[in-house]
Design a protein around this nucleic acid. Structure first.
Lengths: 146, 146
DNA sequence: TTTGGATAGTTGTATAAACAACTATATGTC
DNA sequence: GACATATAGTTGTTTATACAACTATCCAAA
């Protein structure tokens, strides 16, 4: 593949992730407007816990593509907000299992609705098959680099 | 557009920008391996100055999709690294015009090469027409939300 | 059973982004 | 010219990420 394949503007957009940044900002604004007092990063941790509650910080890090210190601090802040609880694992005392509080369980429906709303706004005017191509390309990019 | 259009995994990937994050991390590692002592964010500012030198912080912010405080601090750090210089505009004393140093001019070729290399690795196995579709979709997303 | 390596998590430090509040300068209107 | 308003940039605070160094626990091999 030749280096001449990319024009400058494309290169910059790909690397800085203009589109995904714009999506995240729009969703954050919706959270703020709804007085949710929740960052997108915190939401992305809850997102994985909604799929599977009581997983370790390590597993949360793998799922959300973050290193251990990032998870430590995100869980710190989520605990302060009383959205999760650290529970030391009985089978392996090195591990903390992270559990959602009732308050966090209540957030799922509302925030997922806002996330879907944001994606609908983002992808307005794009045909489903073009969305599919884009999604597949981004998945390949991720697989190529991880 | 229905809310059922997005399965959960897709939704999360779109919003968190897994692919562009992976690209940025890979490029950062290349910078580190080359002992460049430069962050991707700093590079993205230089990127715009290589296109047009001597623009204001405000213009840099518009170009790189950042707010004024972010640019203030990025320019602070780039000045410390002796890669740019703030020059107060004579026609409007509110403005700082940002100029590349000779040292920063020298970085252009090497870093753009590494950026192209990164994109080639990222997009390996993706046909040019699928890359085009993806790029167009991301542009539409950005335009829809900005 | 001891020891050495692997794994889970925390802490320190630097860089960066978002938001609000602030200073300084410019500009248009009376 | 004086004043209101807009614009350019800075500073403070909180949250998040990257990387290195650290502690605690587990486990396997001698």
């Amino acid at each position: 593949m030749s280096n001449n394949q990319f024009k400058r503007g494309e290169l910059y957009s790909f690397i800085t992730g203009k589109a995904s940044t714009a999506i995240a900002r729009r969703l954050q604004k919706k959270f703020n407007a709804a007085n949710l007092n929740l960052t997108i990063e915190q939401w992305s941790v809850l997102y994985h816990l909604w799929k599977q509650d009581g997983i370790s910080q390590q597993e949360l890090g793998n799922a959300s593509f973050r290193d251990k210190p990032s998870i430590t601090r995100l869980v710190d802040n989520l605990e302060k907000l009383q959205l999760v609880k650290r529970v030391s694992s009985e089978s392996d005392r090195r591990m903390n299992l992270i559990y959602l509080t009732k308050q966090a369980q209540k957030l799922q429906e509302q925030t997922m609705e806002l996330a879907n709303e944001t994606l609908n706004e983002a992808l307005e005017g794009v045909s489903p098959d073009r969305i599919d191509v884009c999604r597949e390309v981004l998945q390949i990019v991720y697989d190529n680099l991880k």
